[in-house]
Simulated assay, not measured.
Amino acid sequence: MKLIVKELEKLTSIEETLNLNSFLNESVDLIELKDVLVRGKILKSFEEVKLNLAVNLTVIQKCARTLLPVTYPLEFETEIIYSKDDKTYDYYLSDTIDLDQIIFAEILLEKEPFVYHESAKDYIDESEGSGHPAFQALKIDTK
């Protein structure tokens, strides 16, 4: 979804469901982003556009150990400032704002860095004190 800056009102409400599947090839661990709902307010002043948004979606991400899909909900709020003033902006204000691109970037910042499928085996169980099996031969007997 593209926002044309000169067509924005001083205060605009937004409630949109975005399809961000075209961006998925830019992330190595995301499989799918479902039901990406963006709600909030867009405030426009002289040379500034401020987006106050709440984003809700379902993330399907690869398990860090098995690459099996892990599904979880993600909710976050964000404030993004487009401006021509280099002291205040997050992004430089141009004639159009690509909402899809900026929301995808925010999702990359907010998603879990690593997720684990319920079947993923943890080779390092610190409660047993055994460590990874590959290093068992290196263990020094202190008795």
Rank of each mutant, 00 (worst) to 15 (best):
I4G: 04
L8E: 01
K10G: 07
L11D: 10
I14D: 05
E16W: 05
E16L: 13
L18M: 13
S22P: 12
S22R: 15
L24G: 03
E26K: 15
S27E: 03
V28S: 15
D29G: 12
I31Q: 01
E32K: 08
E32C: 08
L33G: 04
K34W: 05
D35Q: 11
V36L: 08
I42Q: 01
L43Q: 11
F46Q: 05
E47K: 13
E48G: 08
V49F: 10
K50F: 00
L53Y: 01
A54F: 08
V55F: 00
N56D: 12
N56H: 13
I60N: 03
Q61E: 03
C63K: 02
R65P: 05
L68K: 14
L68C: 07
P69N: 07
V70H: 11
T71N: 05
Y72H: 04
Y72I: 01
Y82R: 09
K84F: 14
D85G: 12
K87Q: 14
D90Q: 04
D90E: 01
T96P: 08
T96W: 09
D100V: 10
D100T: 10
I102W: 04
I102K: 11
I103V: 14
F104I: 09
A105V: 15
L108M: 08
V115M: 02
Y116C: 06
D122Q: 11
D122M: 08
G129T: 04
H132V: 02
A137I: 06
A137Q: 14
A137K: 02
